[in-house]
Each structure stands twice: as C-alpha cells, then as structure tokens.
Design a binder for these strands. Structure first.
Length: 488
RNA sequence: CGGGGCGUAGCGCAGUCCGGUUAGCGCACCUGUUUUGGGAACAGGGGGUCGGAGGUUCGAAUCCUCUCGCCCCGACCA
C-alpha cells in the first residue's frame, strides 16, 4: 500500500516529489529546470484554466495573444521592471545554425547574429504596453480588459516541479483604465476573483492582503496577493494582482484624450496565476497514499472498477451509471483494463486522487448494490444501485467541502499572534504557519527579520485591524500586525 | 555562483575502495499456465557501446587526466 511514496513526516519535499512523479502529474525533462506536464497534471491545469477563463469573461475580459519575444530595448523602458527581471532572462542572439566545419553536428552561425537581441518573455507588460500605445487614443477606447494564456520563461537557479520551473504556463491580464480609481477597482476585483476560484474550486483557503513595498512586483504601485498555507507550515503565493499606476503608460507613452479633450496617461493593472497552483493543490490536500484532487477540478470525479474484471453484465450496469451521472455533469471513467487486478486499480486510483470510487462485482449485482468509497476519508460503504444518481453528486459536494474545511482548520491551527521576537522565533521553529506580528514598516526591518529567521512578510492582511503595538525587532511603534511566514 | 551527492537495461540500485569468468539484482516489459472482492504466483524470455573523450595495462564499470549532464542544500524568485 502506497509502498513507493515517502511519508510527509519523514521528508515533506520528497513526499511532494514522489506524488508528482508517481501520480503521473509531471516528469523532469531533458531541459534543465523545465518539466514535461503529463496528461493528469495537464488535465488539472485545463480544468483550472477553463474555470478561470469563464470567470474572466463573465467580468468583461477578452483573450488575445502577444509575441513570445520581446526586443531587449523594451525591457529597459521601465526602470524597476528591468531591475526585477534582468537576472533571469533567456536571450535570443542568433537566428541560424550551420554544419560544424570541424566535424559532426551543428553550431551557431556567427553571421546570423541579431541586430537587437530578443528576450523570451518573463512577463509581457512591455510588449503589451508598446502595443497599447497604438490601440488607445481616446477615453472611448477605455477600459481595455485583455487577458492572455501563455508560457513564460524565468531562468531560475533552483527549480521544483510546478512550484518553480524555468518555463511555466500562466494567464496574464493587462488592463488599461481612464482613472486611478477604476484601475484600483480592477486590481481588487481580480484579487477577489482569484480568492473565489482558489477557495471554491481548488478548496484552498486564502489569506488576502497587500505586499509590502519590498515584496511588490517590479514596476507596481500596489501588489495584492492570495497566500495559501501548505501542510508543512510554509506559505505559498498562489496569485497576484497589481495596480501599476501610470508607470507603464509613462514608460511607453500611452496617453488618451479625456471627454473634455485633455491629454492624460492611462492607468494600468496586471495580474496572473500559474501552473504553480497545481503544486499548491497537491501540497494542500494530498496524503501519504497519494494525490487528492478536489472534485470540482478532478479530471475524473468517479472511477468505476469492475470486480474482479469487466464482464458484459457488470459493464452494462457501469455504462448506465456513467450515462446517468454524465447527464448530471459528473465526470465518470470506467476502468475497463482486464489485465490488472482490482487491488492494483484501487491503489492506482488512490494514488491519482480520483475523489470517488465505485466497485461493482457479481456479489453486488446479486444484491442490487454497489460499493462506494471516498478518497478524502477512505470510507467505504454499500449503497443500493437505484440511489447512485442521488448519492454521488451529494458525496462530491461533501468531499469538496470537507477538503476546504480540513485545510481551513489546519490553517487556523497554524496561525499565531505573537508580541516578542522570542515568541516569533519559537513559533516558526515549532509549527511554522502564519504568524501575526507588529512591524515598524521599514524595508530594513523586514530584511533583517528575514535574515534572522528566514521568514518574510507574506502580506499586510486586507482585514488589517488598527492596533497599537511595537515592532518585534526594533520596538518602534506599529499601527497593526502584518503576517509573516516561511515561504516557497 | 558556493557546499554536498550521483551518472551501470525503461525505472531504482549493487559491483568501483583492492583491475581479472559471459557485468548482476529488484521493479517494469514479452510469452504461457494457474489465479482474480485491496498492489497475484510460477515457468520461460528480451533488453547494456557501464555519461563522454583521452591515457595506464596482457586485461578497465573499476586506476589517472580532462569533460558533459543531473539531483539535493544555500543566495534569487510566481
């Protein structure tokens, strides 16, 4: 049973790697830092993508696509932006190969050097704002609410499947507005939308807040973040929404005429979530037996296993269940493999995180019943065949809710308020999690605390409560607690 | 870029210190038989330029030199 997965208590990182590998989410590829996303991992991403895409469109956004390559000169137009990304860019310098004059293989043709190097996009603000310059003339062109589904490359030094890869998939929204207020509202709207998605679909409880100036996106005036807590007590930033002010509009000279014919710079936002969410999903819900996928994002919500093997009688019942549940929108797979034995299949589907398993054998059919098992609690029961259509949808809802409740309870148990540095350190060392503490508001203190404890300020919580106190490091006055944690 | 580790069958490894039959083992794979309600058993079978290039030697997976790649821990980051 689960004989190939390292337990969480033994080695959490190894456990995560084992799940990714054994459940078939992703493989290491031949390219350093880049993974191959396998069908199960990709199917989960597709479900995330489809749901988010619907939510974006329901709030008035449309999709478009911009180039993979960004001219080098574009990147340097916004000073902070280039500073943030310069160290991790892949650069295209040539456009042709030639046969190696010294032997076999090919080499870069030196005569094919590009006049201006191209950067493989680490994010698309620059190429998009360069384009928006041509699209926006008047207040009538605003707001511009565009999203793009794409891949980006950030040349990270250390990578981990889904959590940090050199190339990753994401969506990036880039909006342009006539007023500051409207842009700020947009950034908040998306922040709320991400929270809703992560909580309602991924069953991941979210701590909402704003980043400190130090942790802000390069080129943003305000960064809103959705922070999740993993089972090892470390925080994971699951998505961000930025209010960009007029920084990019000024860098790319994007101006518009107001209704009273004045020329003004456009206000901007950008926001994104990535394949990292798949990693967050794994680390939030899964256990030592393998993956657990919340029903709403599970590629297969129910798997039917004929016991011991598919027979015409069993398949007839299975097909009927699949059709009827399918009509109710439930995704059902019948495992028709006649080479593998039931025990193997049970273990396999548990590893792959299918929320509900139905077992049907001759013994069950004789009694007009089936066996039903839920992945989250591993409870099994027998139910009458004619109740399946009612029981399964309810059970899926129950599992979805249970996963969220369990994760929320874990987060609550791992959320602590402290008032001294000693308390702060001891909480971080003993159980980790989110730690609320007073901070004097300076970047200097923030960095010093990180140096001493490895913990960073995850956010200034949105429900920030005014509370007089003193900074745990410097003793200077503070107006309220911020949230610290060790993070991925 | 610093510290550590590893490259031997699809995967996981032993063998390397101390050179010497035809390079082994487990899983996986193929064939057959018996099985089948929680990862089946037995029998037979296929699969290797031992990461690469030089060198030492009668003889190299093993020793020497160079080189390439990957993983883990740190600094950077969604």
């Amino acid at each position: 049973m689960a004989k190939e997965i390292t337990s969480r208590s033994e080695n959490y990182s190894q456990w995560y790697n084992d799940i990714v590998k054994k459940a078939g989410l992703a493989d290491h590829s031949a390219v350093r830092g880049c993974m191959v996303i396998k069908p199960l991992g990709y199917a989960i991403w597709e479900n995330m993508r489809d749901q988010l895409d619907k939510m974006f469109k329901d709030t008035g956004h449309v999709n478009a696509y911009f180039p993979l390559f960004i001219p080098k000169s574009f990147l340097s137009k916004e000073a902070k932006h280039v500073e943030g990304f310069a160290k991790e860019c892949a650069v295209v310098t040539h456009h042709r190969l030639m046969n190696d004059p010294n032997g076999d293989g090919v080499v870069v043709d030196p005569s094919a050097k590009l006049e201006e190097e191209l950067i493989v996009r680490p994010t698309s603000e620059t190429i998009i704002w360069n384009t928006y310059k041509d699209w926006i003339q008047s207040y009538r062109d605003l707001p511009l609410l565009i999203n793009q589904w794409a891949n980006v490359v950030r040349w990270e030094m250390r990578t981990r499947p889904f959590l940090r890869t050199a190339e990753f998939l994401w969506q990036e929204g880039h909006t342009a507005h006539a007023t500051k207020e409207e842009a700020e509202e947009e950034a908040s709207l998306i922040h709320e939308l991400y929270t809703r998605f992560l909580e309602d679909y991924a069953a991941i409880p979210i701590l909402k807040g704003a980043k400190t100036p130090h942790e802000r996106f390069a080129g943003a005036e305000e960064t809103y973040t959705v922070e999740a807590l993993m089972q090892d007590g470390k925080a994971l930033q699951a998505g961000t929404s930025h209010f960009l002010g007029q920084n990019f509009a000024k860098a790319f000279e994007v101006k518009f005429a107001t209704s009273d014919n004045k020329e003004e710079f456009v206000w901007a936002t950008s926001w994104g979530v990535t394949t990292r969410m798949v990693g967050a999903l794994v680390m939030t819900h899964s256990d030592d037996e393998g993956l657990i996928i919340p029903p709403k994002l599970a590629p297969n919500q129910v798997v039917i296993i004929p016991i011991p093997k598919p027979t015409p009688e069993i398949l007839e019942v299975a097909d009927k269940i699949k059709a009827e549940l399918g009509a109710k929108g439930v995704r059902v797979k019948i495992d028709k493999d006649d080479k593998k034995r039931p025990g193997f299949k049970f273990a396999q589907h548990e590893m792959e995180g299918v929320p509900v398993r139905i077992g049907i054998g001759a013994r069950d059919l004789a009694k007009n019943q089936i066996e039903i098992a839920r992945r989250d609690t591993k409870e099994k029961s027998q139910i009458a065949l004619d109740t399946v259509n009612d029981v399964v949808p309810k059970l899926l809802e129950e599992i979805q809710q249970n996963l969220f409740d369990k994760a929320l309870k874990f987060r609550e148990e791992h959320t602590t308020h402290v008032s001294t540095m000693d308390e702060f350190k001891s909480v971080l060392e003993s159980k980790g999690g989110f730690v609320y503490a007073h901070w004097d508001g300076t970047t200097e203190t923030e960095e010093k605390i990180k140096e001493l404890t490895k913990a960073t300020i995850r956010c200034i919580p949105l429900d920030f409560e005014a509370e007089e106190g003193t900074c745990i490091l410097t003793g200077k006055p503070s107006k309220g607690k911020v949230v610290f944690a060790k993070a991925y």
